[in-house]
């Protein structure tokens, strides 16, 4: 029994890792080798593809652009979601359930539906091709997500804590910032993780709402496809580099992650 389990798990993890290994393998080969000789490991190990990304203009800018709007989005989402989640977890008010459902439908709505109006709206407001445009558009799904996750964690904090703090003469803002937020730290960690993740991986909106100045890395990556064909090594190297922020974030929240999933709020 235990053996079958182990084998099953190892097979699954191999299935997950082999495509990633192949990506890394290709990124370390010159194009001549990639197209010329099929090999399970790099025979002429080279870091040229990475060197090109770090030295050529545009690539670094693309990474930076992506990180800027992802961080903006995360900050905005968490800031506005905190009080809202508190309201949902502590109070009953008119229309609360419908409001909550409406928020969730935005998490479920396909971004393609909102594509054209976003484009028009942001051009009218004058923020097209700015980082804030993508950050605001991503709020569409990251705010509902943050509210959903945080509400779950806040409901787990007993209400007696709020009441005791008021009796001790804490004002609401002081209580919220100095007592309540530290209590749900791990919840905020999980919410940050998911806001970061969904904004980082999204392509359609980020691509449509930017043209030059705020162009994200996923668009810059298409530069490796030119008239002469695809520069596979360069494409693979750029892909490897996009895995790093995600891997780092996973590593830092690995303990909170299981708890976040335990609440089923993703």
């Amino acid at each position: 029994m235990e053996r079958t389990k182990k084998i099953g798990l190892i097979v699954y993890i191999l299935f997950l890792m082999i495509p990633i290994y192949w990506l890394i393998n290709l990124s370390l080969q010159p194009n001549r080798d990639i197209l010329g000789s099929f090999s399970l490991y790099p025979q002429n190990l080279t870091f040229d593809n990475y060197r090109r990304i770090f030295t050529e203009a545009g690539w670094a800018r693309g990474y930076l652009n992506s990180l800027i709007y992802v961080i903006m989005n995360t900050v905005i989402s968490i800031t506005v979601a905190l009080p809202a989640a508190y309201a949902f977890s502590r109070y009953k008010f008119i229309g609360d359930k419908h409001l909550f459902f409406w928020l969730l439908t935005n998490r479920m709505a396909p971004p393609a539906v909102f594509l054209l109006p976003f484009f028009q709206l942001y051009q009218t407001v004058g923020i097209f091709d700015m980082h804030i445009a993508v950050a605001l558009a991503h709020c569409l799904f990251s705010i509902p997500l943050a509210v959903w996750i945080l509400e779950g964690f806040m409901s787990g904090v007993p209400k007696e804590i709020d009441e005791t703090a008021y009796i001790d003469g804490y004002s609401f803002p002081r209580f919220f910032v100095f007592i309540f937020i530290p209590l749900i730290r791990s919840g905020i960690g999980v919410a940050v993780f998911f806001c970061f993740m969904f904004s980082w991986v999204e392509l359609l909106l980020a691509r449509t709402l930017t043209s030059v100045d705020a162009r994200p890395i996923s668009v810059v990556m298409t530069r490796s496809i030119s008239a002469t064909g695809v520069d596979w090594g360069l494409l693979a190297a750029a892909g490897v580099l996009t895995l790093i922020p995600g891997a780092l974030v996973i590593y830092f929240v690995r303990n909170n992650l299981a708890r976040g999933f335990a609440l089923g709020r993703v």
């Binding site: 699954y12 993890i13 997950l16 890792m17 990633i20 993740m197 980082w200 991986v201 999204e202 392509l203 890395i217 996923s218 990556m221 892909g239 996009t242 895995l243 922020p245 995600g246 891997a247 974030v249 996973i250 590593y251 690995r254 992650l257």
Partner: peptide, 13 residues
């Protein structure tokens, strides 16, 4: 960490 990794890969990647 290994199992969660594919979730963090940008969709176009």
């Amino acid at each position: 960490v290994l199992v969660a990794l594919p979730l963090l890969v940008p969709w176009n990647v």
